[in-house]
């Protein structure tokens, strides 16, 4: 078994954030593939990858058996959120080629043992935390909806920067957007195909991912944007503006909480954010 420093990633994902975590591998599984999968696991409240947030503490690979240890900004972080991340790690890593088993370990948490054992034994959240009132899916759905709404702010800003007006933005459907993955642009068709403009791709792509996850945008004909409650966006300037402001507030809340968690994480776990 060899211990290696994490190599620079050849892929598009920036792995420098994971550099602080310890890695032990016998090369039976591609480490980069594991990291790419971990990057898909998000802190559900902060709507950011656990790799970016530097939660991953250690990765051990031994003849196909992979162990991932992670740590959160405080020992008091919501067990429900911790559970979602732990199951996310398990489910993402086990699909990597060559992986025969996945063990997840949550360290330094007041419910670390229950979560570690429960997730590795594939028990349900309700059976481990019998006093939890809400199902884990309901919590996840609510957080996803908040994240969707917050991401909408950047998406609409990008469209406005592309020169589009509220009455052009409000009626947009999924069919009107074409994401170009060979560049950083997206093409947006408005006014029944009479006009096509290009805008920044990432804010739209990130928004669409979350809009799909929440079920808001499933078909080509689905309207893209909605208010906090999921009601389609109105195009009159006043209500449009008030929903844009509300989405800005949702984003500020998530980013503000993210800043608190980053600072606590730095303080408690010795990581460093730029």
């Amino acid at each position: 078994m060899a211990t290696t420093d994490p190599p620079d990633s050849p892929g598009s994902t920036n792995h420098s954030e994971i550099a602080h975590s310890s890695v032990t591998t016998d090369k039976s599984v591609d480490l980069d593939a594991i990291r790419d999968r971990l990057d898909h696991v998000h802190d559900p409240e902060l709507d950011r990858s656990i790799v970016e947030l530097q939660y991953v503490e250690a990765i051990e690979i031994d003849d196909g058996a992979v162990t991932v240890a992670f740590v959160l900004p405080t020992a008091w972080c919501s067990p429900a959120f911790a559970w979602m991340m732990a199951t996310g790690i398990r489910d993402e890593v086990e699909v990597v080629s060559g992986v025969t088993s996945v063990t997840v370990r949550l360290s330094d948490h007041m419910h670390g043992d229950e979560i570690t054992t429960g997730v590795n034994q594939r028990r349900s959240f309700d059976s481990v935390f019998e006093d939890a009132e809400d199902g884990i899916m309901a919590v996840q759905q609510k957080l996803d909806e908040k994240a969707r709404f917050a991401r909408q702010h950047s998406a609409i800003k990008a469209l406005q920067q592309g020169g589009l007006d509220p009455d052009q933005i409000a009626p947009l459907t999924r069919a009107d957007i074409e994401l170009d993955f060979s560049s950083d642009l997206a093409a947006v068709t408005v006014q029944d195909g009479a006009l096509t403009v290009t805008v920044a791709r990432d804010p739209l792509a990130e928004y669409l991912n979350k809009a799909r996850e929440t079920g808001l945008v499933a078909d080509e004909s689905d309207r893209l944007f909605a208010d906090r409650e999921g009601e389609p966006l109105a195009s009159d300037p006043e209500s449009f503006e008030s929903i844009v402001r509300d989405a800005r507030l949702a984003a500020a809340n998530i980013e503000g909480q993210g800043a608190i968690c980053e600072s606590l994480h730095e303080s408690r776990n010795g990581v460093h954010f730029d």
Partner: peptide, 11 residues
Amino acid sequence: GPTIRPLNRDA
């Protein structure tokens, strides 16, 4: 804000 045991959605 930060609570003792925010197990539940409405904590």
